[in-house]
Amino acid sequence: MTTTLIKKFTLPLFTFIIFLFLWQCVIWIGNYQPILLPGPILVAQSIWHFIISGEIFTHLGISLFRFFVGFGTAILIGVPVGFLLGRSNTLFNAIEPLLQLIRPISPIAWSPFVVLWFGIGSLPAMAIIFIAAFFPIVFNTIKGIRNVEPQYLKIAANLNLKGWSLYRNILFPGAFKHIMGGIHMGVGTSWIFLVSGEMIGAQSGLGFLIVDARNMLNLEDVLSAIFFIGLFGFLIDRLISYLETIILKRFGE
């Protein structure tokens, strides 16, 4: 057990050290000045400054608030819509082509309308996050509902399970892995577009921090913000995986 834990943490640490070394080698070989490509030490100093000054926590808190509101709304709407389309062939045939037409459009393409409708601030970012997460959740939920084992539905019919009992005991457990697959995809895409959304008219958040640092030509601060974006995107994904494990245990899997 101890050996396994050591390997689990040692190997990623070793990979990270190699990455830092290669990064520094690129600077040495290319003779890049900090104004073009800051080195690991300079970026580490910037990260430390953001932490001890508390500035990063202000921007991070705002970004997380926007993310969880937009992403949570996508789940609350996307999962029921997926259930409805997955259960009704009529609704599926009527609505699915329209959703497939809209799905490939980048959420940022809607930004002119989002700014016109919601102004500047948090709402445009939340709207873009919602759009980015909605479609993966909907389509994976549809797939999950349509892949529920037929014998489970026969058992439900024999037991006269209908309405909420059918969804709670048969459909939701049967489709859960696909739903979580959509949520994982939604986390990745919406966290990416969170930054893009905050670059459009926002005056706070991690995306704004990147724009502000870029305008001041503080590229070490840009890379610091990128580091925090990657770190917390990773932590959010791990949190979702942990919750998925807990729910799967409850289903006995």
Rank of each mutant, 00 (worst) to 15 (best):
E55T: 12
I95L: 05
A132G: 06
A127F: 13
F92W: 06
G72N: 05
F65E: 03
F118L: 14
S53Q: 11
A127Y: 08
I102L: 15
P112R: 14
L64C: 02
P104Q: 11
L99T: 07
I77Y: 03
I102C: 13
P124C: 09
A94W: 07
S63R: 01
I75W: 08
I108Y: 09
T90V: 14
V114L: 15
V81M: 12
L84P: 05
L64P: 02
I52K: 14
V114I: 15
L98G: 03
I129R: 05
T90A: 14
V114F: 13
S106R: 12
W110N: 06
I95Y: 03
P80N: 08
L116V: 14
A74E: 06
A74F: 06
I120M: 11
S63C: 00
F68K: 02
G70R: 02
F130N: 02
F65M: 08
I128G: 00
P107C: 12
R66K: 05
M126V: 09
F68V: 03
A74Q: 07
S88M: 08
I120Y: 13
W117A: 14
G119V: 15
F71T: 02
I129A: 04
I77F: 09
F57V: 02
T58P: 00
I120G: 04
A132N: 07
I128Q: 07
L101I: 15
A133R: 03
L123S: 00
I75M: 14
I51K: 06
R103N: 11
F134P: 03
I105F: 11
G86T: 08
L116W: 13
M126D: 01
G86E: 08
I75P: 06
T58M: 08
A74K: 04
S122L: 09
L99A: 11
F135A: 07
L116C: 10
F67C: 02
V114C: 12
F118N: 09
L85N: 06
V79Q: 09
V114G: 11
L85Y: 10
F65P: 01
A127S: 12
F57T: 00
H59D: 05
F68R: 05
S106H: 12
S53I: 12
F130G: 00
A133Y: 07
I105R: 08
L91R: 04
R87N: 12
V81S: 07
I62R: 01
F57L: 05
T73L: 15
L60W: 00
I77D: 02
R87G: 12
I56Y: 00
E96V: 12
N93D: 11
I62V: 12
E96Y: 13
L64R: 03
G121A: 11
V114E: 09
F83H: 07
R87Q: 15
A94F: 09
F135G: 03
I95A: 02
S53E: 10
S106D: 13
F135I: 08
P112Y: 14
F65T: 04
I129G: 02
I102P: 07
W117R: 10
T90M: 10
L60P: 00
V114W: 10
I51V: 15
G70S: 04
T58C: 04
I105W: 10
N89V: 10
I105D: 07
G119L: 14
P136W: 09
W110D: 07
A133D: 01
I52V: 14
V114T: 15
